[in-house]
Amino acid sequence: MEGIMFYIISIITVGGALGVLLSRNPYRAAMWMIFSFFGIAGLFVMLHAQFNAMLQIIVYAGAIAVMIVLVMMVMDKRTLESIKRFNPQAFWPALIGIALLADLSFLAYKFKINVGNAGKHLTINGSNTQMIGEILFKHYLLPFEVTAIILLVALIGAVVLTKKDIS
């Protein structure tokens, strides 16, 4: 049962990601991306990390994907259509992809991963809201705050860069 669920969710995730790469229409690519985020949220639910799953949906599918669609909508239509989705340099990325796949299959072979166990024994005990809060704000408070400040700097940097362009 867990195995079947795991495979369905993996197909959703990987299929959504492939849809992002392969669809010619940029809007459709954005919709496939949400599909993929949905699958990732499903994987988090299988890990009993419901808090992460819901944050995945709220932040990525709900906010970031809407932001991407908004940017595409306010862009000039001709600019959007003139951007090429594919280019002829597919050879080297494909090579890297094959190397990565070979690497992963080698690891799977070496550590003797049993496919029959897919989706089982995934539960991590107590990975819930309170645990995340305690770990973030008790043990890793300083790195967390530093990350927040870096994000703020990036935000202000983006504003400064665009302002310069206008004047």
């Binding site: 419901q50 819901m54 949906i57 709220i58 599918a61 809407v66 809201t129």
Partner: peptide, 21 residues
């Protein structure tokens, strides 16, 4: 579930995709 509010917020966020689409 223990995270009802987050679940409802998540689904409300996704509901806007019908309109966008």
């Amino acid at each position: 579930s223990k995270i009802d509010i987050l679940y409802i917020l998540g689904m409300m966020g996704l509901a806007s995709f019908g309109v966008l689409m």
